[in-house]
């Protein structure tokens, strides 16, 4: 066996998959907001989430070769291209988010590029999900939930932070001027779903399935 065990964790056949918000959507089917919705929530389920650990020197080239993304070295920043993003989490930790289904191939390709160096790659796709918030009041809903400063002057596009969110943690990202993204741990998804419904109620909140 190899020194690090990588295996295809996704089924090849037809298997019903349930995203972290599956239960919440069933339990709290959302009535359309009265009037204009101030906040629109949309899950981006089943994306590939890989944690990369190591020094920039070790990771930079290989990561660029495999993903086409440059490893961001400025704290709390991320680099995105189309549906791929790579976010700084710590001086030796990054979150790579890719379209669904690419976790095994990407990890194998990365390990192939990076060889025997000191680094780690961990597939966490099953344990977290991305929730997108948009609408004119999205920022207010987030302000109810985090002590981070979300003002455009201090939270420009391309910034992402790992922080306390409501009474748990989350990653807050701003991929562009219109959208916010939350990266949420699976087990807290329902709590945060209910939290966001409550926080968004005064503005009108609705969900959007893609």
């Amino acid at each position: 066996m190899s020194k690090v065990e990588v295996f295809q964790q996704q089924p090849s056949g037809a298997v019903a998959a349930e995203s972290p918000f599956h239960f919440s959507r069933q339990r709290n089917p959302l009535a359309p907001a009265k009037g204009e919705a101030g906040v629109i929530m949309a899950e981006r389920p089943f994306l590939t989430h890989l944690i990369l650990r190591g020094t920039p020197e070790v990771l930079l080239g290989g990561v660029r070769n495999v993903t086409g993304l440059t490893l961001p070295q400025t704290p709390c920043s991320m680099n995105s291209k189309e549906d791929k993003s790579l976010q700084w989490l710590a001086p030796d930790e990054w979150l790579l988010i890719l379209p669904p289904g690419s976790e095994f191939s990407t990890e194998k390709a990365l390990r192939g590029e990076l060889g025997d160096g000191s680094y780690a790659i961990v597939n966490v796709s099953g344990g977290q999900t991305v929730l997108e918030l948009s609408g004119p009041n999205a920022r207010e809903v987030l302000m109810k939930s985090t002590s981070c400063d979300l003002h455009p002057r201090t939270f420009p596009e391309g910034r992402g932070v790992s922080t306390v969110f409501a009474k748990t943690g989350a990653i807050i990202r701003r991929p562009d001027a219109q959208r916010w993204e939350l990266v949420i741990r699976r087990s807290f998804a329902d709590y945060l779903y209910r939290w966001l419904l409550s926080a968004g109620a005064e503005y009108g909140i609705t969900t959007q399935e893609r």
Binding site: P75, C76, A90, S147, C148, V161, T163, V164
Partner: peptide
């Protein structure tokens, strides 16, 4: 010193 910015104590 690693994130190079100030955050609230709760973090």
């Amino acid at each position: 010193p690693y994130c190079n910015e100030r955050r609230s104590e709760e973090e």
